[in-house]
Design a protein around this nucleic acid. Structure first.
Lengths: 150, 150
DNA sequence: CGTTAAACTACCAAAACGATAGTATATGTA
DNA sequence: TACATATACTATCGTTTTGGTAGTTTAACG
């Protein structure tokens, strides 16, 4: 189970825009995001377009770069994820029980529903403002602390 | 973000085996699982093979059906998921920081790492015994209670 | 020696993924 | 007016993953 690169890049773009809006009021330019985030300028077209369509970022004039459409504490991780995936449920049957004949008596479905709720809760309650204030991990730390005993 | 059908079917197969081991000691036959779970017998070949390789189910003799390899309270959802996906991390960089140049200073990575931990915790602590003891959802309940305000 | 039940191996179509490429548009500047 | 800049928009594309189907083999039992 993995998030695709669009969501992952999308989050990095949002973080980049949130962190790089200085007081010059010019916004954040796509080419600068591409450089900092090491994402191809052209691929970034798609990412940025999705974020714009989802009304998470704006470009007020054709001369300016991008700004967050609202304050970072009003943009959740779920908002960002939804910009790229219309339906993020773990399984079709969670939202649409008729997609599976067994839905009404399926213990597996309950498990996925529980996990799905946990994931949605996390994504709803994690705001962009929390993310940009967090400390980054040191790479070596993560490997040794989190995954050694799985 | 979705689990693939192998994992989903795999869980249903494990539940089916756990629930249908009566006192006849014959085990659970693939053809019966296929019928009950409405999974093609042939496709089930692959699912069952993965579960066997992961040592979650056994077939003690060529004449018998399948049994759980250990008690249901010693089989976690994570065990089942791992039977189908060697690496279930949300992102490559979580286990392998060198896969991304930005790992060492990436606030996005921390977010995914947090979510990843939550998902792993859930899957590690949810045992097959819990699952088979749970009440199933009524389909209509799920839609109205869980997803109405997302 | 046929039946049953699974085991093993190949193969395959469709969709998703992760991009690249080319053209259009709009604006400020020399 | 011509040009540079900065996206916007649309099309295309190779690869991988997904979700299977099919055929052949093996082993035990009646």
């Amino acid at each position: 189970m993995r998030f695709n690169t669009k969501v992952r890049y999308g989050l990095r773009v949002m973080i980049d825009i949130a962190l790089n809006n200085g007081n010059d009021c010019k916004g954040v330019f796509q080419k600068d995001i591409a450089l900092r985030q090491k994402i191809s300028f052209k691929y970034l077209d798609h990412i940025i377009n999705s974020l714009k369509v989802a009304k998470l970022i704006v470009r007020p004039s054709l001369k300016s770069g991008y700004f967050l459409a609202r304050p970072a504490n009003e943009i959740s991780l779920l908002d960002i994820e939804r910009a790229f995936n219309a339906n993020d449920d773990l399984q079709e049957c969670l939202n649409n029980p008729s997609s599976c004949q067994l839905s009404s008596c399926c213990k597996a479905r309950k498990v996925w529903s529980n996990l799905n709720s946990k994931i949605l809760d996390f994504m709803k309650s994690t705001m962009l403002s929390d993310i940009i204030q967090s400390e980054e991990y040191d790479c070596n730390m993560i490997v040794s602390e989190e995954n050694q005993n799985l």
